[in-house]
Simulated assay, not measured.
Amino acid sequence: MTQTQALIEEAVKKSGLIWVQGPTGPSRALWHVWHEGAAVLVGGPGEQPLDGLGLVDGGTATVTVRSKDKGGRLVMWAARVAEVPAGSEEWTAAVAELKGKRLNAPDAEGLEERWARECRVVRLSPTGDTSPLPDGSLAAEPLATPVTTRRAMPAALPKLLRRGRR
């Protein structure tokens, strides 16, 4: 194992999220597991969204791994994308690992069946190529959404809050 492969494996194993950017769409934070030399993730209805990234079998993606404790970028690497066919031996082994890391699943007993029926399991295997880390911020405009969370504070709110403390 080369130093680059060891760095990628160790960083991905310790990080709870990886940032994945496919050929299309923005980079997206995804939860994953490291299994048999690749980052494995699941996406689809009821899971994390993979649509819009362009992750297709045989395609490529760029993966950025951050430090779990400091949050800074550790390594950016190129990945080969492989969709794992549902029901195969490889799928069964990958899903067993993923199921152990899936938090708050609404249907823990039927999770594997739902994933086989509705979701995609994708392997991101390192090609061995890494990219230099950028010098500046990679902050981007938030994606457009009809949801709003911020409105002007009502003028009477500070007075009401002070009154509740008495």
Results as ranks from 00 to 15, higher is better:
residue 53 L to E: 09
residue 124 L to A: 09
residue 119 C to P: 00
residue 89 E to D: 15
residue 146 P to T: 13
residue 57 D to G: 11
residue 121 V to P: 00
residue 128 G to A: 12
residue 55 L to F: 09
residue 163 R to W: 03
residue 99 K to F: 02
residue 57 D to P: 07
residue 118 E to V: 12
residue 76 M to C: 03
residue 79 A to S: 13
residue 54 G to W: 08
residue 60 T to A: 13
residue 72 G to W: 09
residue 42 V to P: 07
residue 64 T to R: 14
residue 40 V to R: 03
residue 37 G to V: 05
residue 72 G to F: 11
residue 33 V to T: 11
residue 34 W to I: 02
residue 19 W to M: 13
residue 73 R to C: 01
residue 131 S to R: 14
residue 73 R to H: 05
residue 91 W to K: 12
residue 151 R to M: 08
residue 42 V to L: 06
residue 141 E to G: 01
residue 125 S to Y: 00
residue 128 G to Q: 12
residue 56 V to I: 13
residue 161 L to V: 13
residue 84 V to G: 02
residue 44 G to M: 08
residue 21 Q to L: 07
residue 74 L to V: 14
residue 147 V to P: 00
residue 94 A to R: 06
residue 80 R to W: 04
residue 156 A to L: 04
residue 47 E to F: 11
residue 150 R to W: 04
residue 145 T to I: 07
residue 75 V to M: 11
residue 20 V to N: 07
residue 58 G to Q: 05
residue 63 V to W: 04
residue 105 A to H: 14
residue 116 A to T: 04
residue 15 S to Y: 04
residue 128 G to M: 10
residue 30 L to P: 02
residue 28 R to Q: 08
residue 106 P to C: 09
residue 150 R to Y: 06
residue 28 R to E: 02
residue 134 P to F: 09
residue 82 A to W: 00
residue 22 G to N: 02
residue 158 P to R: 01
residue 14 K to G: 15
residue 51 D to R: 15
residue 26 P to C: 00
residue 52 G to F: 09
residue 20 V to A: 05
residue 156 A to Y: 03
residue 122 V to M: 06
residue 136 G to R: 11
residue 112 E to Q: 11
residue 96 A to L: 08
residue 22 G to W: 02
residue 50 L to C: 06
residue 34 W to C: 05
residue 46 G to A: 09
residue 50 L to Q: 04
residue 154 P to V: 01
residue 28 R to K: 10
residue 49 P to G: 06
residue 103 L to S: 11
residue 64 T to E: 10
residue 117 R to D: 15
residue 138 L to P: 01
residue 54 G to V: 10
residue 32 H to V: 05
residue 112 E to T: 15
residue 60 T to M: 05
residue 31 W to D: 04
residue 162 R to E: 12
residue 9 E to G: 07
residue 108 A to R: 15
residue 39 A to I: 02
residue 131 S to A: 14
residue 12 V to N: 02
residue 28 R to D: 00
residue 40 V to E: 00
residue 66 R to N: 11
residue 46 G to R: 09
residue 152 A to P: 03
residue 139 A to H: 14
residue 142 P to F: 08
residue 30 L to T: 06
residue 8 I to K: 03
residue 29 A to Q: 08
residue 41 L to W: 04
residue 127 T to F: 07
residue 97 E to D: 15
residue 144 A to Y: 05
residue 122 V to D: 07
residue 105 A to M: 06
residue 81 V to P: 04
residue 138 L to T: 15
